[in-house]
């Protein structure tokens, strides 16, 4: 039994989730408060990966990042980045693919807070950063957790995008979902079952924990 695909899957999910958190917080904050006319365009773009077939996304990534095309060539020559069929490429594709899962819950959390909280802090002379850190974020913790978990779980479940841009290179891009597909193709149902069972158990435990925490079931009941 080869555990590398599982390790790679979780590595990809952890890296993607961490980067997404840093990117999505300011983006969601901006989207929740802005009246810019670009907002609907940006919102549509952020949400696209929810409805597009992953293969479409993967296909365009493949085309754009291929060293045969200008952008891919530029990346390769100037930054030394070879993104197609590499782990880095998987991370980039996963960032886009899981973006809505991180942005939307956080944006909804920000939007649900009464405007007066931010205004009160503003009138106390607090900087934008202090308002975000000390007032807004502590009050949308459940939304942030939801975003983290959904982005993590969604990255674990990736298949189409990974297959298109990463292929099936052991130790580099062969994540669990690909390994399962591969095992089934090779009629190795035992391995496919082990991978599947582990993914099933882990994702179920993560989601269960989050729903239990957000629903307050783990807190001591107060009267």
């Amino acid at each position: 039994m080869d555990f590398e695909p599982l390790y790679l899957t979780f590595k990809l999910a952890v890296v993607t989730t961490a980067i997404l958190l840093v990117l999505a917080l300011p983006l969601a904050y901006w989207l929740s408060g802005t009246r810019s006319k670009f907002k609907p365009i940006l919102e549509a773009l952020v949400t696209m990966p929810l409805v597009l077939p992953p293969t479409v996304l993967g296909f365009y990534f493949l085309v754009a990042l291929s060293p045969r095309n200008p952008f891919g060539q530029w990346l390769s020559e100037n930054l030394g980045l070879q993104l197609v069929f590499s782990f880095k490429g998987l991370v980039l594709a996963s960032l886009v693919y899981s973006l809505p899962f991180m942005v939307q819950p956080i944006q909804a959390g920000f939007s649900a807070l009464p405007k007066s909280l931010k205004e009160a802090a503003q009138l106390m002379g607090k900087s934008r950063w202090a308002i975000l850190k000390d007032v807004l974020l502590p009050n949308i913790k459940p939304s942030v957790w939801t975003g983290i978990v959904l982005a993590f779980a969604h990255t674990i479940g990736e298949f189409g995008v990974v297959l298109m841009i990463g292929g099936n290179i052991p130790g580099e891009t062969r994540v669990a979902s690909i390994a399962i597909y591969d095992s089934v193709e090779a009629l190795d149902y035992a391995s496919a079952n082990t991978y599947s069972l582990i993914l099933f158990a882990i994702t179920f435990s993560i989601l269960l924990t989050v729903y239990a925490i957000n629903g307050g079931y783990l807190k001591t009941q107060r009267t």
């Binding site: 009464p114 007066s116 909280l117 205004e119 009160a120 802090a121 503003q122 009138l123 002379g125 607090k126 900087s127 007032v135 502590p138 009050n139």
Partner: peptide
């Protein structure tokens, strides 16, 4: 800007920080 005016505002919904 409001940050630099040092005005205290008691809002209708009180705007107390819940956390």
């Amino acid at each position: 800007p409001s940050r630099k005016r040092n005005v205290a505002f008691v809002f209708q919904d009180f705007a107390l920080f819940p956390h």
